[in-house]
Design a protein around this nucleic acid. Structure first.
Lengths: 121, 121
DNA sequence: TTATCACTTAGAGTCTAGTCTAAGTCAATA
DNA sequence: TATTGACTTAGACTAGACTCTAAGTGATAA
């Protein structure tokens, strides 16, 4: 699969894909005889995972660490699991924070709707 | 209330508070005879709101727009409400995205726990 | 054969949201 | 009185995550 196809499939830019490869999140992707990238199934799976985790706000740095541990082999399993559990915790907290903010936002909108807005901001 | 007290109260830095003032999110904050900031109750309420919305990922730019509309007066009420509703929608989508990612993360952790991890990454 | 187009690279530039620095003022304390 | 410490300013710097540019290669269309 070419970089263009991958970019379309996952709705991201070629630049981002090359950037992820440069920082070591994906690949190194195989190149054909003219030096053009040909993404493998495994590359695609990694990209999908990375994209999903990025959309949740997990940093490139953390993901890079996870990928590196993975590439180190079996003996890093526990450490990888712990890393994921740590991110799970952070993500749950973030969702909580955002849900609270959403409630406040909804409340404020309600004030606008019922024209009871006599407050600050 | 001094900048230091405000910063402590809301767990942010003096720099951030001055930055918010510089970009027009807060204030202009009253200064005493020696030029020291003295935050009013209204300033505090704005800061609390801003902080809450920032923690949900709403951009400075959007918040600035909202504050500006507010300062324009009554006749921007509808526009303000629409802006908030737009942000509500975005926030709900973001929470959904993050919740989905969280589920995937939990699933992966489960695979680690049950030692069924035979996949990619 | 020449031009077009998609790809390649290294590296520079951009955006957001702060964060830090340097130089200066003022009030209070040793 | 001298110095300490908290505050002030303008403006430079940073981190994270891309995003763009310039210069080049190679396959295909006119």
């Amino acid at each position: 699969m070419t970089i263009k196809e991958v970019a379309e499939k996952f709705d991201m830019t070629n630049d981002t894909l090359r950037y992820y490869e440069k920082v070591g999140l994906v690949g190194p992707v195989k190149k054909n005889s003219s030096g053009i990238r040909d993404y493998s199934e495994e590359d695609l799976k990694r990209i999908e995972f990375i994209k999903c985790m990025r959309s949740a706000g997990i940093s490139i740095e953390v993901l890079k660490k996870y990928v590196d541990l993975y590439d180190e082999g079996e003996n890093t399993k526990l450490e990888r699991q712990q890393l994921l559990e740590e991110e799970q915790k952070k993500l749950e907290e973030k969702i909580k924070t955002m849900t609270d903010a959403l409630e406040k936002l909804k409340f404020k909108i309600e004030l606008y709707k019922t024209d009871k807005l006599d407050e600050y901001l």
